[in-house]
Design a protein around this nucleic acid. Structure first.
Length: 496
RNA sequence: GGCCCCUUCGUCUAAUGGUUAGGACACCGCUCUUUCAAGGCGGCGAUACGGGUUCGAGUCCCGUAGGGGUCACCA
């Protein structure tokens, strides 16, 4: 039987980084085995639905290269793939459970349930639905139940969990697990609004969609006994289960947006590459060798093995993500990067720059930043002449000697041909030697005049990218405009 | 609190019962050098604790401690 897995998010917001990891492992498992990857939307809670989430989930999965084979907008043999369009199915199966005696009807109001929990809490026992004292099929009797139903009194359908015995199941990553039945609650399967809860819908759909492996987050482990009971009540063969370790905040709690963003979309906006995000997230909880850090999606597919998934949760370390992103930044095709950079340029209204120019900018700065858009802050001077000059750097890099050399320097630069960094470098070295000055002093002065800041890419390379004309213009502008202003500032500071 | 899960450097992780417990991020140092990076080289740094099984335990068993998840007409 061929592998069929599903990613089943609920549309309550944006695709979460933890969701992405779950989706990724499902995807990798499916592709590794030549199976099918299904997307199913679990929107059985009308009150939590957020407009646009389905689109966001699909868009982000696509951006990451995790395209599904069956699902909303794509169809497939076991649709519909949106649970709110399948309510009839769940009602039918809930009725089947009723007929089989595996579930029962209950009429308790939310207030009554709340009071029950309070009583239990005060008595020091674990809150759990009490089948023997609440208002349900058993305490009310068949006749009364039918009467209330006929009257249209709201009701729910609950799972009839055995009072004794042990529920056992096995998990691919965690092995054998058993839970005493008395600790399992009589879960509501069908809500009074006619919608199913997760537990019913999930089990029914996984069965109907022929899912062979359920790969989901560890937060679902506690509800496994209920699901096991459901499969047994229906007489269905269970899929195999794999509960993935959680993604954690730095304080080891479940990953949340309290410690930074968690929406995949936010990482995209910040300029992370999907390859980097996938690469990073894949290695959170699984590792093929431990000796390598960089893997393409294709390699991940080839190497993926559910049995090697870790048991312990993993802290989401943004530092390492940045490092991986920086790695991709340094190894991607500069032409492609230039195209991306051009999009950012347009979004930010920074002006008109040719792809040719942007490619040079990328090559110049890619080793100095972790994220492509950081080029705009780190290398702002490549998009407009410097308007701000670091005072501390000015104090260090500027001197009377240097100032006296500017006319000669301009003359030298003007006649440099071709305007290439190796030639510029040789000429400047000769110039420094001839003037009896350290080359470093010349370079620092140039850096100050051309960029305004103390750190940046190689100076002669920067000059080449800027072009001769722009270089000369900036030097002249510095001397005529910025220098007097800087002097004045320095004087003001000194007098304070 | 009940139940369930988990525990190797600060972090992500590797290690058929036999390794000086390996790699990577971060940090530190050196190197390169016109600044800053990148790269190269090196350093720091871990089997939670206590018992047992075994010739031999990170690895198997038990216990303790710590952490997490979950206990809804949410998923």
């Amino acid at each position: 039987m061929s592998v069929r897995v599903r990613f089943a998010p609920s549309p309550t917001g944006y695709l979460h980084i933890g969701g992405l990891r779950t989706a990724l492992y499902n995807f990798l498992f499916a592709r590794h085995h030549g199976g099918t990857f299904v997307l199913r939307i679990e929107d059985t809670d009308k009150t939590r639905y957020v407009e646009g989430s389905v689109e966001n989930i699909i868009e982000m999965l696509h951006w990451c290269g995790l395209d599904y084979d069956e699902g909303p907008g794509k169809g497939g043999p076991y649709g519909p793939y949106v649970q709110s369009e399948r309510t009839e199915i769940y009602r039918r199966y809930a009725r089947e459970l009723l007929d089989k005696g595996a579930a029962y009807i209950a009429f308790d109001t939310p207030e009554e349930l709340e009071r029950m929990r309070q009583r239990q809490q005060q008595a020091g026992i674990v809150p759990k639905y009490d089948r023997t004292t609440m208002r349900n099929q058993f305490t009310l009797g068949e006749e009364e139940t039918q009467r209330l139903l006929a009257e249209g009194v709201p009701y729910v359908i609950r799972l009839k969990v055995p009072l004794t015995g042990v529920i056992k199941f096995s998990d691919i990553v965690r092995g054998e697990i058993s839970v005493p039945a008395r600790d399992v609650d009589d879960q509501i399967l069908l809500k009074s609004d006619g919608f199913p809860t997760y537990h019913l819908a999930n089990v029914v759909d996984d069965h109907l969609m022929h899912i062979t492996h359920v790969i989901r987050g560890e937060e679902w482990l506690p509800s496994m006994p209920k699901h096991v009971l459901l499969y047994e009540a229906f007489g269905w063969e269970k899929p195999q289960f794999a509960h993935l370790p959680l993604l954690l905040n730095p304080d080891r709690s479940k990953l949340s947006k309290r410690h930074g963003h968690v929406a995949v979309e936010d990482f995209k906006k910040e300029g992370y590459f999907p390859e980097a995000l996938i690469n990073f997230v894949a290695l959170l909880g699984w590792n093929p060798t431990g000796e390598r850090e960089i893997y393409s999606l294709q390699e991940l597919i080839e190497l993926f093995d559910l049995k090697k998934v870790n048991k312990a949760g993993a802290i989401f370390d943004i530092q390492k993500l940045r490092w991986i992103n920086a790695h991709y930044l340094r190894h991607k095709d500069p032409k492609e990067l230039a195209r991306q950079l051009q999009q950012y340029v347009q979004e930010r209204n920074l002006g008109d720059f040719s792809l040719e120019y942007l490619e040079k900018v990328v090559i110049l700065l890619r080793e100095r930043v972790d994220l492509l858009p950081e080029i705009f802050t780190f290398g702002d001077y490549l998009f407009h002449p410097p308007t701000h000059f670091e005072q501390e750097y000015f104090a260090r890099a500027w001197s009377e000697d240097i100032e006296a050399l500017i006319p000669a320097l301009l003359t030298l630069l003007r006649q440099i041909e071709p305007w290439e960094h190796t030639v510029i470098w040789e000429q400047l070295k000769g110039f420094a030697k001839q003037q009896g000055i350290k080359i470093g002093k010349v370079m620092n002065a140039l850096r100050l005049m051309l960029t305004g800041k103390s750190v940046g890419a190689g100076m002669t390379e920067t000059m080449e990218v800027l072009g001769k004309e722009e270089t000369l213009r900036r030097i002249e502008q510095f001397v005529t405009q910025h220098l007097p202003a800087l002097r004045q500032q320095m004087a003001e500071n000194a007098s304070e």
